[in-house]
């Protein structure tokens, strides 16, 4: 176990380095720099600015400098948002995104798992059909569509929910709902099919032959096996929630990490691009590792190598 985690961490560090290097290389393929967009500064100012942030040095030197500082825990200052360090911006953005993302993952699991179970247990009956139809449509609707339709209904037509910002609990309703919609539908489908598979397994027959009640068969023997695919899905789900949050944050003008990432790219805010990319990548990789370890705990068959 410890060896496995150590190995995975090592691989993750390598992947992160790879992501950082690719990002660094890609960043400079884009013509223009961070300071061009602002009312075209004079050549002298530009040079001074470039010099100040070390952008005048050869790329390879810049790369080395960045990496050395990064390892020391310094992600530098934002080139656009003067006076704020990259880590400050990331930490404020992350707090917002994590709240919305965490809530929607929680909701997706709490609704999706029972829905899938209910559908599987009522296989072929109307309740199952309703859940299947809704879930199948659900995975076909992109989050921006859900978000905007919610907005039309609750803000434009009914005028009962605020459309931007995150200052009260009402502000959370639509973003979280929009973000949770797809994974809820996906988890329902996943849970249904894995539940159906588990219900047909020989060990369920064994459980029945022991004289166990429906309740115990379901909660002890079926659920723990059927939930395994959902656990594996949590890794991709976390990544999805992040991308989904790019859109949802844009629609509801929420100052989260996704917003910071996209605008840093559009603004050529080099340090911010590096910082957010590495941070998001690390987050996704870490979450995948956590999910894999959790999987091991639930399913003793999986041997972590």
């Amino acid at each position: 176990m410890v060896r496995y985690i150590a190995k995975r961490v090592l691989l993750s560090v390598f992947t992160l380095w790879l992501v950082a290097t690719i990002t660094f290389a890609l960043m400079f393929m884009v013509p223009g720099g961070p300071f061009l967009a602002e009312k075209t500064p004079s050549a002298a100012t530009l040079e001074a600015l470039n010099q100040k942030y070390g952008l005048d040095q050869p790329k390879i030197v810049q790369y080395r400098n960045y990496m050395v500082k990064f390892i020391q825990g310094d992600m530098g200052v934002s080139l656009k948002q003067r006076g704020r360090t990259v880590s400050q911006i990331i930490s404020t953005g992350f707090k917002v995104s994590a709240k919305i993302g965490g809530l929607s993952i929680l909701i997706a699991v709490l609704i999706g798992v029972p829905l899938g179970c209910i559908a599987a247990l009522n296989r072929g009956k109307w309740l199952d059909n309703v859940i299947i139809v809704v879930a199948t449509c659900g995975i076909a609707v992109p989050s921006f569509v859900v978000a905007t339709i919610l907005m039309i209904i609750f803000s434009v037509k009914l005028g009962i929910l605020p459309t931007y910002g995150l200052t009260s609990w009402q502000h959370y309703l639509m973003p979280v709902a929009a973000l949770a919609f797809y994974p809820t539908a996906y988890i329902s489908r996943l849970m249904r099919s894995s539940m159906l598979e588990v219900l047909g397994q020989d060990y369920m027959r064994t459980a029945r032959a022991k004289g166990l009640s429906q309740f115990w068969m379901l909660f002890k023997h079926a659920l723990r096996n059927a939930i395994l695919p959902v656990v594996t899905y949590l890794g991709p789900l976390i990544a999805y929630t992040l991308t989904g949050s790019f859109v949802v944050e844009k629609i509801f003008t929420i100052p989260g990490l996704g917003n910071a990432f996209i605008s840093s790219i559009l603004n050529r805010d080099y340090t911010m691009i590096m910082g957010t990319t590495i941070f998001l990548a690390a987050l996704i990789i870490l979450m995948n590792l956590v999910v894999d370890v959790a999987y091991k705990i639930i399913d003793p068959r999986i041997k972590l190598k």
Binding site: L18, V19, L242, I262, I265, T277, L280, A281
Partner: peptide, 9 residues
């Protein structure tokens, strides 16, 4: 590698 980040970049 987190694909969506690289895709955007």
């Amino acid at each position: 590698v987190p694909d969506i980040l690289i895709i955007i970049l």
